[in-house]
Every structure is written in C-alpha cells, then in structure tokens.
C-alpha cells in the first residue's frame, strides 16, 4: 500500500448537488499537485463520472470485470488523456448492483490503495444499497451540499450514517453558493449550514456557469487552469486536503451585499 494512501468517499444524500463534479475536479486538481489519484465511480446505476472526465469512449473493462477476475486492474484503469496522474476505474453495468456486496467494494479499494495516493469514490445519491456498498470502502468522507433546506437535511442524515459506519474524518464542501442571494437572505447562510451539520468546512464553491459548460465538454474546470471561481475553489479543496492552509472565500465580499454584521443581526431563520 502506498504509505499515505487516502480513500475518500464523496457523498451528499440528495442528488444533483455536485458529487460527481466535485469528484472529477478534485481528482484533476490532486493529480495536478503531482499526486497519483484514482477516481472510482460507485454509482453503478447511473454512472457518469466517465462523461465528466471525457473518458467515456476509452472504457474497455470496468470494475465488474476486475471483480470477476476476467481482467487485471491495470487493464480496467483508464488513464486521463492530459493528466497522466489521474486514472478512472469505471463502474460496471447497472445489473451489477444486484450482486455487488460491501466486501467487493472493499476489495477494489484495497487494490487501488496499493498504487495510488488518493482514491476518490463517487457515491450514488440516496442511502440505499449503493451508498452502503460505497461507504464500506471509505476511510474518510467529504459531504457536499448546497445551501438549500432539503440538501442540508439529507446531508445531515448521511453524516449520521457515516458516523455509525465509523468513517472519520468527515468534512464539508458547500456548493453552488450565491453570495448575492445569501446577502439578501434569500438563501441559507454559510453559518446556518455549518451550524446544523457541525463539520469542518473544506471548501466553498460559488455558483458558476462555467461548470455546466465544462461538464458538457467533458473537460473538468480544473484541467486547463481556468481562473473561474469554481475552478479556484476546487483547487483550494485539493490543497486543503493536502494539509495546506488556504483561507476560505468570504461570500459577503464576493457579491455586492450587506455587511456580514448586519446580516447576522437581521438573520431570519428558515429552519
């Protein structure tokens, strides 16, 4: 095993909050820091990590064949075109869900840990079997959520489940933050979210249209050194994971908003 290998589950509970986007971008960002990184798609039912990375047409074997021992791990790993430090282990076919056991995920993660510094697992939405399989392999986790009541509630549930599975540490990424709406109190404030979830904040990612563009192109934002706010945020998450101290952005300074002080005084609770 690589002595410092870290297996990190990226999960949210609710769908569509940015798990796969974070996995892809964080994978690239870590690889760009010179770390051998593999992203593992644990969303067997609705896989699309390969799409985001633009690797869909390069997949020959998947985790399914590796588990069935009909191919070697090296054959199934898809190396990223521009970022050789990053590899993808594609999910198998959706029918795999029926027989996949938590032990199988452990086996795969164990194999990957021998070769890579970072194993990032893209968790499926929900807390059913797919989640249970993914969580079995994880040692630590990043919970991603958006400043919405439903996303926060689901994240809270997932954090509880991660705790019962003994996954530690669990850190938080707050995605799709709109500074202007926060300042106008039309959206949950960062404090409201961290108040409930009580997790260390690993990153704040601003709402950014570039994310949609990059997703459709299959080129994660972090890949070409984009200066867009989201790309910066993903890069910062990677550096913080590496133990570097990077200050969090202050959403109140990003938009034209009221001062944080006033905001806190007048804050209206949505919960």
């Amino acid at each position: 095993m690589a002595p410092t290998s870290r297996t990190i589950l990226i999960c949210s509970g609710k769908g569509g909050v940015g798990k796969t986007t974070l996995t892809a971008n964080l994978g690239i960002a870590l690889a760009r820091l010179g770390l051998r990184t593999v992203v593992l798609d644990a969303d067997f039912g609705l896989r699309n990590l390969d799409l985001l990375l633009g690797l869909e047409n390069r997949i020959v074997f998947t985790a399914q064949e590796v588990l069935a021992e009909s191919c070697r791990l090296e054959q199934a790993l898809v190396k990223h075109k521009q970022e050789p430090n990053l590899a993808l282990l594609p999910a198998g076919n959706p029918r795999m869900l029926e027989w996949l056991k938590p032990e199988d995920m452990k086996t795969i993660a164990g194999m990957l840990e021998e070769q890579f510094d970072y194993v990032l697992i893209d968790c499926p939405a929900g807390i059913e079997d797919g989640f249970k399989n993914a969580v079995a392999a994880a040692k630590e986790a990043i919970v991603i959520t958006t400043p919405e009541v439903s996303a926060v509630r689901d994240a809270d549930r997932v954090i509880g489940l991660l705790n019962t599975h003994g996954v530690k540490p669990v850190q938080l990424v707050l995605n799709r933050v709109r500074p202007k709406m926060m300042a106008n109190q039309e959206m949950l404030a960062v404090d409201d979210v961290t108040d409930i979830l009580a997790l260390p904040l690993l990153g704040l990612v601003l709402e950014d249209e570039q994310v949609i563009v990059s997703t459709n192109r299959g080129e994660p934002l972090t890949l070409n050194g984009s200066k867009s706010p989201a790309a910066r945020a993903y890069g910062n998450v990677a550096r913080r994971l590496q133990g570097e101290e990077v200050a969090l952005i202050d959403p109140s300074k990003e938009g034209r908003g009221l001062r944080a002080k006033v905001r806190r005084l007048m804050q209206k609770k949505i919960f």
Binding site: R153, D154, D156, R157, I159, G160, L161, N163, I196, A198, F271
Partner: peptide, 21 residues
C-alpha cells in the same frame, strides 16, 4: 442528526444538538 431516533422509558438527557428531522 436527521433520521436518528432516540426512545427511552425514563428521563432523557442529551449532551448535544437534536437536528431537524
């Protein structure tokens, strides 16, 4: 956290928060 349930016959003391849900 959300989804957690705690049920007891006697008195209950919780050292921590009880989150929505």
């Amino acid at each position: 956290r959300s989804g957690d349930q705690l049920d007891t016959a006697g008195d209950l003391l919780i050292l921590g928060d009880v989150n929505p849900g």
